[in-house]
Nucleic acid binder design. Structure first.
Lengths: 257, 257
DNA sequence: TCATATTTCTCATTTTTTGAGAATACCGCC
DNA sequence: GGCGGTATTCTCAAAAAATGAGAAATATGA
């Protein structure tokens, strides 16, 4: 293992179930000598990607929080959708959670969420948690708008074949409704969001308790999410125009902050 | 530049003022040939630390969001304080923002914040934003509980000398009150939080509009923040006991999730 | 289709990383 | 203040990887 991959391999060891590691454990898990593991950890330490916990144990460091903020402030999707998520949840009139999700490697990840104050449930989709690509309205809405080539690479040709009618239906309808596909008792209404110019494929979803989705309300909520998604899309395109597809030449190269 | 530093140097280029970069710009900024810059970006790309934006421009990638979540779920400080921040703000009875901050290199960074629904202001301290070490009640509360040696390393011996009486007063009183030190018109009440066993030095603050801090209310809010901070401290120590200072031997090494 | 800009590749050279163990620093404890 | 054990850093030659300049390939757009 070389270069960045070596460092990421260490960082990927940390998990909810195992949040702190000793150097000996890392060396063991990664099959490298301890002296190498120590050197790697020392580098990560000095960048704040890892920090000391109690007694010879290490945990993830605070640098991620700093970069997360930068992402929140600069990612076009998050910028365009921050207010919209709030508006959807308020407009829904029932307890609900709004989600903005996107492709992340071979998975789908929520990058922004907003729950109504009276939402007593929380969907499995939550900010920063990778989720399977082929289950749930949220994920399917994304798949529906991927190019065939990209889709095949991600899930394989045979899986594409199996999903083709379903994805075509989503493209035609402009939304995807899922009931209990991911979380028992919850239902999701998901709408794709695409911005060619920025290379973005994402989805906006509203998750509510299944039993709230009676006939008329289902229609209302679907329209709510769809128009919100279109609003985000047009914000994305507008921002893209505004800053120009090329250099944001007005802004200084030194950067602000 | 070698190893991790090479990759971090690229990541550190991205800022609020300059959120996307071309490879040529990176190569120029870091004084390396383009072929090297391309290789570095390719590695970052494959780990999701960077991603393509429009037309030959790159931006920070979604991997940070994933690690941020892990941090939120596993960092002892954030775990212990999540509910407490909410409780402080609700208990305050005036518009306010609760902050949990900690050392981050040579700066102080907020790692969790919570604003009351009626807070029409937002303090400069916000989650993930590095702030100066020696200004503001929030930062001073942290400095007050650092060892002399560590303090000298951070701000220099002469600066320590200058702050000594102030920091001693904070230690004695158990809190620090700052009015308009950082943000005009805002005041902060900050209380240090220390957990020796985990090597943590942090502070819990409540930021309100200065004019709300009349005599009796000031006392009440101060007590509110102080008791909340002590609650977090005892949670930290309790958790530390519960998991044991050494191996969490019950949990599998494979990790969950 | 051609022209342009972006990205990857090649390869000899330079630099870094590696691994095993020794040396050192650090800790609690008496 | 020294002791015993653990954590961390250091050493050095061998092995591996990064570097840089330019060529080649690929994508993009008119």
């Amino acid at each position: 293992m070389a270069g960045l991959a070596r460092y990421m391999a260490v960082l990927r060891l940390f998990s909810e179930g195992m949040p702190t590691w000793t150097v000996a454990e890392m060396a063991d898990a990664l099959q490298v000598p301890q002296s190498t593991a120590y050197r790697t950890v020392r580098d990560l330490l000095s960048e704040g990607l890892v920090e000391m916990s109690a007694e010879a144990r290490y945990r993830l460091g605070p640098a991620f929080i700093e970069f997360d903020r930068l992402t929140r402030l600069t990612d076009p999707l998050m910028r365009a959708s921050a207010d919209v998520l709030r508006a959807i949840v308020h407009g829904a009139g029932v307890p609900g959670v709004a989600l903005l999700c996107r492709l992340y490697g071979r998975e789908v990840m929520c990058i922004a969420d907003f729950a109504s104050a009276d939402a007593s449930f929380s969907p499995s989709y939550e900010r920063g948690r990778p989720m399977p690509l082929t289950q749930g309205a949220t994920s399917k809405a994304i798949l529906a708008r991927l190019s065939g080539k990209r889709l095949s690479k991600l899930i394989g040709v045979e899986a594409v074949e199996a999903m083709r009618p379903e994805l075509a239906a989503i493209r035609r309808a402009g939304f995807c409704l899922g009931r209990g596909e991911i979380d028992e008792g919850l239902a999701g209404i998901a709408v794709p969001i695409v911005c060619e110019a920025e290379g973005l494929v994402a989805s906006l979803s509203l998750v509510v308790e299944s039993h709230r989705l009676a006939g008329a309300r289902e229609d209302r909520l679907r329209h709510l999410v769809m128009s919100a998604a279109h609003e985000i899309e047009s914000l994305l395109n507008h921002d893209h125009q505004a800053r120009g597809p090329l250099l944001p030449s007005g802004e200084a190269v030194g950067g602000a902050n």
